[in-house]
C-alpha cells in the first residue's frame, strides 16, 4: 500500500490542500488522519492517495462522460481491489467474449499505477460473468482434450488472452493424455493441445 506522508498547515483545509498538491490528487481521492505533533502549531495530517477512491471516481466519471448507464461498487478484498459493474449498458462490456471488460480492467490498473503508486490488482466483473466464462473455457478445454486423445491430432485454440491461456494450461495440467503449449509471440500467442508423447 502507498506510504503515508505528513503534511502541515495552519488549518485542516490548508494541510489538505498541501497534501492534494503534493500527491496530485483531489480531496476525495486521499485518505488522511490527524497526527499529534509535540511542537506543532497548526494541523498535521498523515495522508496518502486512496486507490479505491481514485478508481471509483475514474470509473464513474468515465461512465458519465461516455453517457454509459453503468455503476461500479468497489471493495478491497484480500489481496485484490474488486469492482462489480452493473447497469443497462453492462452487456457492452461482456460482449465479444468479455474483451471490453478485460480492456477496462487493464486500463483501471494502469490508471492506478499512474495515480496511486503501488496498489492491489484491480479485478472487475459483471454479475459473475468471469466465473461463467472460466467454466465454459474449462469445458471447452476438456472437450478439446478428449478430441485430441481420440484422434491423435493436435488442436490449436483461437487467439486468447494470457489469462484465458493460463486457464486452459491449468485445466489440462492433470490430464496425462495430452500436453499444452503456447506458440507464437505477444498478443498473437496461441495455445496448442497435442497428444502426450509416450516414453
Amino acid at each position: 500500500m502507498t506510504e503515508r506522508r505528513h503534511f502541515t498547515g495552519g488549518t485542516l483545509d490548508e494541510a489538505l490542500t498541501a497534501a492534494c498538491a503534493e500527491l496530485r490528487a483531489r480531496v476525495g481521492e486521499i485518505r488522511y488522519e490527524p497526527v499529534d505533533v509535540d511542537d506543532g502549531e497548526g494541523v498535521t495530517i498523515r495522508a496518502a492517495v486512496d486507490p479505491v477512491a481514485v478508481l471509483g471516481l475514474f470509473l464513474s466519471e468515465m461512465f458519465a462522460a461516455g453517457e454509459l448507464e453503468l455503476r461500479v461498487s468497489l471493495k478491497e478484498c484480500g489481496e485484490a481491489l474488486s469492482g462489480e459493474i452493473e447497469g443497462a449498458d453492462a452487456r457492452l462490456l461482456t460482449g465479444s467474449g468479455g474483451k471490453p471488460l478485460d480492456a477496462l480492467q487493464y486500463l483501471a490498473n494502469r490508471v492506478l499505477d499512474n495515480r496511486a503508486g503501488e496498489h492491489p490488482p484491480v479485478q472487475l466483473d459483471v454479475g459473475g460473468f468471469k466465473e461463467r466464462r472460466a467454466r465454459s473455457l474449462h469445458q471447452q478445454a476438456r472437450e478439446t482434450a478428449n478430441r485430441v486423445a481420440r484422434s491423435g491430432q493436435a488442436v490449436m485454440f483461437p487467439p486468447m488472452s494470457p489469462a484465458a491461456r493460463r486457464e486452459v494450461h491449468m485445466a489440462l495440467g492433470e490430464d496425462d493424455r495430452v500436453e499444452t503449449e503456447s506458440q507464437g509471440n505477444g498478443f498473437l500467442k496461441r495455445l496448442v493441445v497435442r497428444p502426450r508423447r509416450r516414453r
Binding site: L92, L93, K99, P100, A103, R110, N114, F187
Partner: peptide, 23 residues
C-alpha cells in the same frame, strides 16, 4: 502512458471505444 507496453494500453482504449460505439 497512452500507448503502453507493446501498445497494450492503446489497444485497450480501442477495444473500449468499439464497445461504447456499439451503443
Amino acid at each position: 502512458k497512452v500507448i503502453g507496453r507493446q501498445g497494450r494500453t492503446a489497444r485497450a482504449i480501442r477495444t473500449l471505444l468499439a464497445a461504447a460505439g456499439m451503443k
